[in-house]
Design a protein around this nucleic acid. Structure first.
Ligand SMILES: [Mn+2]
Ligand SMILES: [Mn+2]
Ligand SMILES: [Zn+2]
Ligand SMILES: [Zn+2]
Lengths: 139, 139
DNA sequence: TCTTAAAGGAGAATAAATCTTATTTAAGAT
DNA sequence: ATCTTAAATAAGATTTATTCTCCTTTAAGA
């Protein structure tokens, strides 16, 4: 998956740098839709000298090139997602946990639904569900 | 609608202050899911002396008491919504325009859909669609 | 190996939001 | 109508996430 990134960066004419690989690697490894701080914390173990500004810059670059996505939250902090295919999210209403929710059936339904029922004066490009609730696992 | 707020504040044991009325009134009047800055800009015309910190404080209070809602964005800034009944949003992908999307049929479908197809280890409380695309009006 | 534009490091700057403290005020009690 | 008091506000400092500036380093192609 890091090699995927190498290729995608090269394709786009972007330099393959250790910083970019580390940051992308951290987002994938953490697998928790981390924010910049969590990413920095993670990469500093192996690369103690990557600058904070670099992390934000790399995140922007990766987003602009479609290699990661931003995840919206109710807090004043952005989070990042290595899954670039359109999918939905489960938001915990009592913690900051965010998980992926993938549902092809639902996507198909939504596509058909909005093909029939057009929204006046609006051209849909993408639909994401924000599913709010509580995770109920043993811990 | 401002009188609604007076009552709701009183019900909750909160003081009815000019600041709270002005801020809530601005959100309703602007009708554009404004951010704190836009709200401040609007209220300062009539109430030039309301402090910035007060606006944020009041917004928090209103959110905590369910009188307004936060609206998530891809930017590092929170926006606010006077419509507290659960509804969906249209997000413009080229401007910061956000509009309400209300669709009872869709809500009914979603309720049924997720009654049948449960999400493992997750208890749904609310579902919001973020519909991304472009407004196509004449201007 | 050389060249060079792109990228990163360091730290200052900015913008949104929060916090602190003194002052004011809404609202209930007298 | 006045008094009392907890709640709310004003002002401005502070924090936090993010962005910017400027200089140095480096990836990648020649
Ligand atoms: Mn900011
Ligand atoms: Mn911020
Ligand atoms: Zn995701
Ligand atoms: Zn709305």
């Amino acid at each position: 998956m890091i090699n995927d990134l190498r290729n995608k960066l090269a394709e786009k004419g972007l330099k393959v740098t250790p910083q970019r690989l580390a940051i992308y690697g951290a987002i994938v490894k953490l697998n928790t839709h981390p924010n910049a701080d969590k990413i920095i914390e993670s990469i500093r173990k192996e690369h103690p000298n990557i600058a904070t500004g670099t992390v934000y810059k790399v995140l922007d670059t990766l987003v602009e090139n479609g290699l990661i996505k931003k995840v919206k939250t109710e807090k004043d902090v952005m989070r990042y997602d290595p899954m670039v295919e359109s999918h939905h999210h489960l938001y915990c209403t009592s913690t900051d946990r965010i998980e992926d929710y993938i549902d092809k059936d639902l996507n198909n339904f939504l596509r058909e639904y909005f093909q029939k029922k057009e929204i006046p004066n609006f051209n849909i490009e993408d639909i994401k569900l924000h599913i709010h609730g509580k995770f109920i696992d043993k811990n």
